[in-house]
């Protein structure tokens, strides 16, 4: 149709070059797509090849284990409420690790972010140093720190707490410093003009501006940390993850305990997801934040 319209009209140079541009773009996108599909399928093939059990075998037996667990839990359903109560302290420990790690990490991240944002830093030349420091904190997967600390301190919640606090300090420090970049500096200058110290300027000039955003990020981080804390328990740091590992490695006979722990973990993750998204909604979209 386009040709019919343009057929009596002398060819426009821009039109031709536009068409060839489109054609080249399509070619590139097509090639990229083919490359992507090839990489994905080759990747799945390699992953399948290096896995102990194959995909087809695994796929057909994917429900066996959950069915075993559910079947045993159903047979012993009378015990489940008792087990939920029994494992509740372990859940509390996991949540405590996450909460304390988030608080310590957020406070350290707050200080680090102030030291690393231009306009607020007391030593502007050190900004780059503190930024790199946060990058390194962030790059350490918490499991690495936790495993090394378990070797040094023995099992228990403290290694997990330190690991989570360090990682959180790096992750929140970065997000906080992005918030700090948008801070209105006028209140800070006003406080400086009446002779406020650096700590006073930050506390009264910056914190009131950034607090809602900070809280929102910290809540999101808390959600992430609840999951992380459960995982760290699984590798030996106590809490519900540790109980889960024991129940699973015990095998049949303790599947009712495994089911109870699954349930506790799932419910608490969903619960804190809901709570935190409710508060984050209130914090970001105004609405009676206080």
């Amino acid at each position: 149709m386009a040709d019919a319209v343009f057929s009596g009209v002398p060819p426009i140079p821009a039109y031709d070059s536009y068409l060839s541009l489109i054609r080249r773009r399509r070619l590139y996108s097509g090639l990229l797509l083919i490359l992507f599909v090839a990489v994905m399928s080759a990747g799945f093939w390699v992953a399948d090849d290096r896995n102990a059990g194959g995909f087809i075998n695994g796929f057909t037996s994917i429900l066996n284990f959950p069915m075993d667990v559910v079947e045993e839990a159903w047979r012993k359903r009378a015990l489940i409420p008792g087990l939920l109560v029994e494992y509740f302290p372990a859940l509390v420990e996991t949540l405590n690790i996450a909460a304390a790690g988030t608080i310590i990490g957020a406070v350290s991240g707050f200080v680090l972010s102030l030291l690393a944002s231009s306009g607020l830093a007391p030593w502007p030349r050190m900004i780059g140093v503190f930024r790199r420091f946060m990058d390194i904190l962030r790059a350490f997967p918490d499991i690495v720190i936790a495993l090394v600390l378990i070797y040094l301190l023995g099992g228990g919640p403290v290694p997990a707490l330190i690991a989570i606090a360090l990682h959180t300090a790096g992750a929140l420090g970065k997000l906080f410093s992005e918030v700090n970049e948008n801070v209105d500096l006028k209140p800070v200058e006003g406080l400086a003009s009446v002779g406020a110290s650096w700590a006073q300027r930050m506390l009264f000039g910056v914190v009131p501006q950034v607090a809602p955003n900070y809280l929102s990020y910290a809540l999101l981080r808390f959600e992430v940390n609840v999951r992380a804390s459960a995982i760290l328990g699984f590798v030996g740091a106590g809490g519900i993850g540790y109980e889960l590992k024991n129940a699973i490695t015990w095998g049949p006979g303790k599947f009712d305990a495994a089911a109870a722990i699954f349930l506790l973990l799932f419910l608490s993750i969903v619960f804190f997801d809901q709570i935190s998204s409710y508060f984050r909604e209130r914090l970001t979209h105004g609405g009676a934040a206080r």
């Binding site: 390699v46 896995n51 695994g58 994917i62 799932f266 993750i269």
Partner: peptide
């Protein structure tokens, strides 16, 4: 969506490693 997110990577890893055995496919 809420369910698969809420079950969490840890539990999925345990369930899947029962079916697929240890290895990169399970992690994937």
């Amino acid at each position: 969506f809420d369910f698969v997110r809420g079950v969490d990577g840890l539990i999925w890893t345990i369930l899947l490693s029962r079916a697929f055995g240890p290895g990169p496919l399970t992690g994937t």
